[in-house]
């Protein structure tokens, strides 16, 4: 049991170290192509962390959407704009100050949170145990996540699907619906 926990702790430390290193690499990199690829790496590492938390469905989504499709969409956007980040016009002192204050506030906020993984955390004592207890009799499917997503919280999921659809509508309104190739600088259609 303790050997297991030590193993998980080592994996967590490795993942978090790599996450921080990736974030620093993203900050220092001026080439946006490399930044897009590194954000994909960041998502993949987060997916690994979700696996160590036993959140398979979230890990799967993060790997497929975060590391896969959004990287491709980011590269598609880069092809429409510039490949290099513009030079910073002013000094970085004010942004640094804002980041430090916001980060300190967030760290201060986590001090009030219950200890990680404790049995009496709110997440373990409210609706979650009820879903786990009732799914076999109510719904009768083994994947409780699917039961919560599609049945207990079906209305929320409907909202998510509408959001995805609305994102498409917004992009098509901005970029045009025809899907035909545009050519040249003035965007005239062929």
């Amino acid at each position: 049991m303790t050997a297991n926990l030590i193993g998980i702790a080592i994996i967590d430390i490795v993942f978090f170290t790599l996450l921080v290193l990736t974030a620093i690499a993203i900050l220092r990199q001026r080439n946006l192509f490399a930044v897009a690829m590194l954000s994909g790496v960041f998502s993949l590492l987060s997916a690994g962390l979700f696996v160590t938390l036993d959140a398979m469905d979230v890990a799967f989504t993060e790997a497929a959407v975060g590391a896969g499709i959004s990287t491709v969409l980011m590269l598609g956007t880069l092809a429409l704009t510039s490949r290099d980040e513009a030079k910073r016009p002013r000094s970085a002192l004010l942004p640094l100050f804002v980041c430090l204050v916001a980060g300190a506030a967030l760290v201060y906020g986590t001090l009030d949170m219950p200890p990680f993984g404790a049995v009496d955390n709110p997440i373990q004592t409210h609706v979650a145990p009820e879903y786990i207890a009732r799914t076999p009799t109510d719904i009768g499917i083994p994947n409780v996540v699917a039961a919560v997503l599609a049945s207990y919280r079906g209305f929320d999921t409907l909202g998510e699907v509408v959001v995805v659809f609305a994102a498409l509508v917004a992009v098509l309104l901005m970029l045009g619906t025809s899907g035909r190739r545009t050519n040249g600088k003035n965007g005239k259609e062929e």
């Binding site: 598609g76 899907g179 190739r181 050519n183």
Partner: peptide, 15 residues
């Protein structure tokens, strides 16, 4: 939607 988004972005770039 994912495929349409990809097409919407990709069909605007030069070949």
């Amino acid at each position: 939607v994912m495929l349409s988004l990809f097409i919407a972005f990709a069909s605007h770039t030069r070949k």
